[in-house]
Amino acid sequence: MSERGRLAVYLPAALALAALLVLAFLRMPAFGGTVHLYRDLAVPAAVRHVTANVVSAVNFDQRALDTLGEESILLGSVVGVAALLRPAQRESERRPPRTGRTLESTGLLGYLLLPVTLIVGFDVVAHGQLTPGGGFQGGVVLATGIHLLYLAGSYRALERLRPVEVFDAGEALGAGMFTVLGLIGVLAGTAFLQNFLPMGSFGALFSAGTVPVLNALVGVEVACGAVVLLTHFFTEDLTVSVAEQDDGSHQGSEKE
């Protein structure tokens, strides 16, 4: 369909949808009001299980089964990207091109921020049940922190720090142990993924029962998953080149 045709379909549809949405918004509870039925149920449930961060309590205690599904979506997408980006038969994996020049200040800042970012990532994962954050957020911080090494100028150093097999295994382990912990709960006589560990005292690092454990497992899974995901994109961009172009012309098509 031509661009003009697409626009002709889009504009009336968008106008109609916008009108319907505004009609719906007008009958919704007023913005900022005090009636929040789910809140009134979720907050006491979180306090009963000694979880200071109610969002974590919802994610890893009250809706832990949904989080298992969410984690599986992440695992599935990493597997999907790996399948889509695997080198085809006519391609060969090549050595990475020479690293380009990096500003010294960029390099210095990258190396300085690398340990800081990793510590922040571990902190966000470890205190997910107490302060804002958790496995998903901290895992992404950890995975991006490792890639500061690439920004600081050395893809080789990144490759040494990042043995992909370890992260592959870590991702599978994080996702698998989540289910195993749920099954341990079943064996211990509770429901699947029910909070069966001792709750501890409010605000302590080891409180909220299974929430910090599930948080850590999700942190491992997300960090490893994101690293594996980015590795596939890096490999595709930096080290794989089409074999047909190997007769001298491949230098131009490779990206720095």
Partner: peptide, 14 residues
Amino acid sequence: RNVVDPVVQAMTLT
């Protein structure tokens, strides 16, 4: 109970 709804925040995370 005078807090914003945590359930929708968890859903936003998802």
